[in-house]
Simulated assay, not measured.
Amino acid sequence: MFQRLRLLPQFKTVSGADQIILGGTITPDDVTVELGAGTEGAFSTTFVVHQFHKRMMISKEIRLEFVARNRIWRFSLLITPDDAWYGPPPGSWCASISLQEPSPPTWLDARLVLPDAQDSPLPQLRLKSKQMMEAPRKDVPATQVVVAMDDNPAFASLQYSGSSYVSADETLKFRLEAKLRKPDPTVL
């Protein structure tokens, strides 16, 4: 239902820049959430992002929102801005995840996976919270996890045209596999 609402004009999360880039007919990004079994709040989210390179090079951020485990999440692929006070150096291609209001706090232990039949094991990028994640409230910004894609060569390749992970029609497909638990510091 959350994803269907995002298709209505008044609830679209596509930025103004992306609307201009993609023209009048915007194919919405596809976000599919599957809940896992167990007591650790497991879920996986599959993302299909259209016009990936064009949007990254011009907008510098692709925001994707979804609901999982009674929380509203914002996942972003972004290029770190010059005035960023957080995370990797300016110009770095990154993945970021945060909670949105009115989500309750939680830990996050997750990984991004690039599905590709040629690679075994599948390329992965770890996203883990160093503290309890919280949604923004009043003047306090949301706690977010930001990871540079350079931490894994497969993810680093996404910044170049011709990456084997981006289809000929500029579509990027990837998956977020998450558990709402305190991350084990000994696991990379």
Rank of each mutant, 00 (worst) to 15 (best):
V145Y: 09
P81V: 05
V31M: 02
Q124L: 00
L108Y: 08
D116E: 08
S15W: 01
T45P: 01
K173E: 09
E34C: 07
E65K: 13
P136T: 03
L176S: 11
P28K: 06
S167H: 04
R137N: 04
M149I: 12
F43V: 07
E61K: 13
A17I: 15
P183I: 09
R111M: 12
Q100F: 00
H50C: 10
V147C: 01
Q19F: 05
Q19I: 09
L158E: 01
S161A: 06
P88T: 03
Q10W: 12
R6T: 06
T45G: 02
T46Q: 08
G91I: 08
L158P: 01
P141E: 13
L122Q: 15
R63E: 15
V147E: 02
F43A: 08
D151E: 15
M133C: 02
D82L: 03
T39S: 12
P153M: 00
L188N: 13
M133D: 00
D83C: 07
S15G: 12
P89M: 07
S167R: 11
M149T: 04
E170Y: 02
Q51K: 06
Y86C: 06
W85M: 10
E65P: 09
L127Y: 00
K182E: 14
A95Y: 08
V33Y: 02
E101P: 00
P141Y: 03
A156Q: 10
L22W: 03
F11H: 08
D151R: 15
A156Y: 15
A68P: 07
Q144G: 07
F155Y: 04
I62M: 09
I62W: 09
P9V: 08
R137D: 01
G87D: 13
L122K: 04
A156K: 14
R137Y: 06
M149C: 13
T32D: 06
